[in-house]
Structures are given as C-alpha cells and as structure tokens.
Nucleic acid binder design. Structure first.
Length: 675
DNA sequence: GCTAACTGAGCA
DNA sequence: GCTCAGTTAGCG
C-alpha cells in the first residue's frame, strides 16, 4: 500500500485542480470506509447476491458483495441496497445470502442497506427472471414494474393486522355461479386446496365481479391468497365492492396506477407483509407478492390495457399464468368473449372450459338491423332502433354504444369546411382509425393524399363529434328523456335504474344498477374496418362487453351487416366458436398463438446489425425489415409455438451481445399485441 | 451506462 | 519522459 501523499494547499491551485483534489479526497475517504467495513465481515453468510439496477442486458445477473458485520441482519433477501458498481453507486436488491462466493476477486462491501424491508419476494425475483427470459428483456426492467418506489414515511408505519379468515358460504358461491358449468366442481376444487385452471366465457348479463369474488372466497377458504387483474380502475372498483360484499371489510387491497406513491406503497406493504391476502388491481398488480398464492384471475384478457407498454412489454395474462404455474396456483381467465390465447389454453389442455349454460346464453336476445343509407342526410339511427329504444325506455335505462369520437363522421376540409368526397364515387370520406388514411364510406377507396378541390388545402377535420351528435339526434327523437354521454375523459362509472339514454364509446359504458333495458350498438362497420390482426376479435369483445350490461330478458340491437361473422357470433352468443374459428385462421396464417412472433424495431442500421447477430432457432422465418414512420424500421421473426422458448433465448442472447458490443439499441417485442 | 486503465500522438 | 485525448474492457 502506498504511503499517504502530502496534501496540496487547495487555495493555491486553480479551480480545476482543486476539484480534482476534492474528488481524490472523497475517493480516499470512501476507500478508508470500505476498508474499515471490509475488515469486519458478517459472521454468518458474509456474501450477498445482489441484482443491480443497470439497464444493460449483458449485466443482467446477480453480483456478489461482501456483507459488513454492521449490515449482517439488515441485508436480508429482498432488501433494497446501494452498491458500488463500475465506479458508481447503484441501487439493487439482495436476492440471497451465501457463505461463499464463486467470484475469484475480492468482493466490494455493500455500500448501504437502504431498508431492511424485504420488498422483493423470492417468488417475484424468480418471476422476474422467467419474464425477462420469455420477453427477451432484463430483470431490472421487470423489477421496475414489479416493485413500487419506496416511501420512507409509509414504511415506518405498521401495516394493519391480518383479518381473521372469513367464513366461506359455499351455497352462495354455487348459486352465484349457477349459469356456468362446471362451476360448482371448480369452486369445490379451489376450496379443497386444489389449483384448477379454467378459461371462462361469462354469460351475458352476468354480474362477473360477484362471481370473481366468490371464486376468491373459495380459494380463501383453503387458506391461500388470491390475485385478480382487471383492465381499468372502474373494474377494480367493481371487483373491490364485490370482494367487500362477499369476504367482508378489510380482507383485500385494491392496487391501481392512479393512487399516489404513499398509498401505493402502503397497500403494497400490506400485501408483502401478509396483512392482506386478496389483491385486485390493474396490470401492475400482477406482480403483487401475495403470500401462498392459490388463485390468479385475469378478467377480459383481450383488453389491450393488459399489455404493458414499458419494456419488456409483458402481458398480464402471461405474467399471471407463469405465476400460477410456478407458484402452484389455480387460474381463471375470463371475459364475455374468449381470446384466441384462451382458446389455445383449452386446446392444449392447460386449462378446462368454464362456459355459460345454454339457457343463460339465451337470456339475452341480439338482433342485427341494416345500416341506414349513408347517402341520406338523415340520422345514423334506423327505425328499428328507434322502436326498440322507445319500447325499452319505460322499464329502464338504454345504452347506445357509438365508436370513438371523431372517427365516425364524414370529414371536411379543415380550412374551408367543404365536405371531403371520394375521387372514385363522390362518397363521403371518413376515418376508420386514427392511424389509417381516410377512406370512402361507400366504396372503401383509400384517399391518403386528399386535397380540397375548392381551396387546395390538405388538412381534414371531423366536423361533428360522434357521440355528441348521436346524443343530439336521440335527444330530438325522444323529447323529455335525459340523454347523457360517457366517453374518453368524461366517463360515467355507474347509473341508476332511471329511464334515460346513455351514449357511450366502447370501454366507457357505465354499469346500470339493475342492468339496461336495451343496448344499441351503432356503426359496427367502423370497429370492423380497422386494419388490425385482431379487428374482428376486438370488435366482438367491445360489443359483447356492452351487450352484457343488459338485464336478463333485455334486448340488444346492433346496426350493421348481418353477414359479418363477428356479428353472427354476437347474435348466437357463441364466443367459444368464434375464438376457435379465429384461432384456426391464425394458425393457417402462421400467426400467434400457434406461432410465436417477435418484432425487432429501431434505426435501419441497428435492425440490420441485430438481424446479423441473431442466431434464429431452426424453422424460424425472418420477415422484413420494413420501413415505419420516424425513420425506424421493423423486422418480424416467427417460429412454430414449440420453438417459442428457443426464439426468446436467441433474442435475449442478441440483446446481450448487442449491449456488450455497444451497438445501437433495438426494441425487441415478443408476442406484441398488435402489428 | 460508467469508470478506470490503456494506448499512442505530440512535445520537451 | 510526460501529458492528454481518444479508445476500450469490465463491472462482484
């Protein structure tokens, strides 16, 4: 060791050198502290295995640190720590303590235990590893989604005491599930400590939050915990209310993104400390460290809110099913429709079917009426719909679903308001989705480079808002009836049973206390016209979710083409048959879930490099790359489902090599929701 | 990513 | 022989 240098006089030195001296002093002080700490290692298990929070793929594995005696008790598995890594202080989690390390060099001591609170449960650490492998991402990315930010003041507070196990009313649970088969056996299996896995297509007019709550109660009866994930905060509130009704107060926590940091951490701690054993929440809740997990529930798994938009882009359903598998829990994948992924779970025998009885499916009648002539300047609401609304109103509220704002109406020149017309047939131009070019509502011809014939301007606008205009039209047709709207950022959560009309966009439909007397689906062509892999499936999902809000015996009227397969599936209330057909078509087209598909997106040069580095598994197909907007491009790689794990592994290796060689980043998405 | 060690150019 | 900018390996 070198003798201490004589320290230069700072005031005699120029600023830069002085700064250097300060740094050097700080270094020697840090080194002294480290030496002192290293001198006294913990007596038991002096090695801490730490996952460091660095975003680099090739550094995604635990690193060993020495545990100073002073941290012997606090540096426990799951604790948040600060460590010196590559010359800087970084955050990390202790994942294990060990007696020895297989690292050959001297171990750097832990810098600091941020908190002894074990926030990273062992099963969540393992899950992060599996998800990182599955989605070709890093554990640190997954952990950022899984563990909420620390809130020191909240951490000091004790969590509420764990409540007593509530009594389980099996008769009530079976009664609530009476419309579904074989629900009684499924519930019994859960209550007996079994882990049945089911894909559930709910009957129309089913109060599904109540059924989920009873499944939770059955699981709780076996002493185990429950985790329920739903698409949005509105559904969290509904399931929360049902859980309170069935299990009693203080049995569950609701985890949502819009709770503040303090509340979020408080609720997380209540789960992590075992004070709450039942969790309902949105997609981030899929990582909640529920103790002794007995059941995971994913409601409406087709909703794209379940797809995490941050790397590595895990899907709630996949996260929950991985957990069910590794933690030995039962699973319930439910919705008013069945996704092709749900169909796949059934076909492979991974899950059993939980379906609506024939009588329950017939409880609601769905009719399809043709669209009014688009050329008529009259309204979009046909006579049959007027009649149905008129008939239903005296007995309760009526829901009118109309596709999203602005995409509905014919377009006009943004400058001079001249209506935009199709060059081929003079029909009105409209937008099918926010991303597609406008196209003709009569003949379908796309008009990507429209220019106003009057003034030459190229901008288009929607002159009237869709739901506002519909509400206006209905208000005129039914004078004296209250017409309310629910859409976008002005969503009505619930509704009384008063006789009023609610015009809502898909996903924003309020739930009526006693169910709707009638549900009307307008402009069904619009949802079907999206150029998306899942357009049909997604359209049926949105219609079914609205139609399911009708009361038993109520009427559903859809305006559209009766020949459309998705509308026919709605009329027959046959989500299983529809999913099976969709799955078959996807299989023929080598699309998920029969294939596993991944995208590589980034700068053209970066994507080229990535494709050169990628060692695809046997049978892999590489498509593209094709140019996208913003100078990016995207390649697609797909393999038969059986090679899915190999594809994920190859993509993970690609990211590690790319990261180690400091090549430009590319975004890898495994099983993206859309293409 | 970042730091620290390494390398070679430029100059005394 | 030394400094310094530019490069690069390795991170416990």
């Amino acid at each position: 060791m070198s003798p201490p240098r004589p320290e230069p006089q700072p005031e005699l030195l120029p600023g830069l050198v002085r700064a250097e001296v300060r740094r050097s002093r700080a270094r020697t002080a840090a080194a002294r502290a480290q030496r002192a700490a290293a001198a006294e290692p913990a007596a038991v298990d002096p090695v801490a295995r730490v996952l460091v929070d660095v975003p680099l793929a090739h550094l995604d594995s635990p690193f060993d640190y020495a545990v100073p005696a002073t941290m012997a008790d606090t540096a426990r598995p799951g604790a948040r720590v600060k460590v010196r890594f590559a010359g800087q202080d970084v955050d990390g989690f202790v994942v294990a303590r060990a007696a020895a390390s297989d690292h050959s060099g001297r171990l750097t001591p832990l810098r600091r235990v941020v908190s002894a609170e074990p926030v990273l449960a062992p099963q969540v650490a393992a899950l992060a590893g599996e998800l990182a492998a599955r989605y070709a991402g890093t554990r640190s990315d997954v952990l950022r989604l899984a563990v909420p930010a620390r809130h020191a003041a909240t951490e000091k507070q004790p969590s509420p005491p764990a409540p007593d196990l509530p009594a389980y009313d099996e008769a009530a649970a079976v009664a609530a599930w009476t419309d579904h088969e074989p629900a009684a056996a499924y519930l019994r299996h859960l209550a007996d400590g079994g882990s049945p896995r089911a894909v559930w297509a709910a009957a129309p007019a089913t109060d599904w939050p109540l059924l989920v709550a009873h499944a939770a109660a059955a699981t709780r009866a076996s002493g185990r915990g429950v985790l329920v994930c739903v698409p949005d905060g509105k559904d969290v509130a509904r399931v929360g209310a049902a859980l309170t009704a069935v299990l009693g107060p203080d049995q569950h926590v609701a985890l949502t993104a819009d709770a503040g940091p303090a509340r979020r951490y408080r609720d997380f701690l209540a789960v992590s400390r075992g004070a709450r054993r039942v969790v309902v929440g949105t997609r981030a809740a899929a990582f909640a460290p529920v103790a002794d997990l007995g059941l995971v529930v994913c409601w409406d798994d087709g909703d794209d809110l379940h797809a995490e938009p941050r790397a590595p882009y895990p899907h709630t359903r996949e996260t929950l099913l991985l957990r069910a598998e590794r933690e030995g829990a039962g699973a319930l994948v439910g919705g008013f429709v069945r996704t092709v992924e749900g169909d796949y779970l059934l076909r492979t025998g991974w899950a059993q079917e939980l379906g609506a009885t024939r009588e329950a499916r017939r409880r609601v009648t769905v009719a399809v009426v043709g669209e009014p002539d688009a050329r008529s300047r009259g309204g979009r609401v046909p006579h049959e719909v007027h009649a149905a609304v008129k008939q239903a109103l005296p007995s309760g509220p009526v829901l009118v679903q109309t596709p999203r704002l602005g995409y509905v109406t014919a377009l006009a020149c943004a400058r001079c308001r001249t209506p935009a017309r199709c060059l081929a047939c003079r029909g009105p131009l409209a937008l099918g989705s926010p991303t597609d070019p406008p196209s003709c509502r009569w003949c379908g011809t796309a008009a990507p480079s429209w220019a106003c014939p009057e003034c030459g301007h190229r901008g288009l606008r929607a002159p009237v808002l869709g739901d506002a205009r519909t509400a206006e039209e209905l208000g005129r047709a039914f004078p004296g009836t209250t017409v309310r709207t629910s859409s976008g950022d002005r969503v009505l959560a619930t509704l009384s049973s008063a006789s009023e009309i609610v015009v809502a966009t898909p996903g924003a439909e309020p739930v009526a206390a006693e169910g709707y007397a009638a549900v009307v689906l307008l402009d069904t062509w619009l949802l079907l016209s999206r150029v998306d892999l899942r357009a049909q499936e997604e359209a049926l999902r949105r219609w079914a979710n609205a139609a399911a809000l009708v009361r038993p015996g109520g009427r559903v009227v859809a305006v559209g083409d009766p020949g459309e397969p998705a509308l026919q599936a709605l009329v027959r209330w046959d989500p299983a048959g529809f999913a099976a057909r969709e799955a078959a078509e996807r299989g023929e087209a080598h699309l998920p879930p029969a294939s596993r598909l991944a995208t590589i997106t980034g700068e053209p040069g970066a994507v080229d490099d990535a494709l050169t580095l990628l060692v695809p598994p046997d049978g892999a197909e590489v498509l593209g790359p094709v140019d996208l907007a913003d100078g990016e491009c995207r390649a697609v790689v797909r393999v038969p489902r059986a090679r899915g794990a190999a594809l994920s592994a190859a993509l993970g290796e690609l990211q590690r090599v790319r990261s180690a060689r400091k090549l430009d980043a590319v975004r890898v998405q495994v099983d993206p929701q859309t293409l």
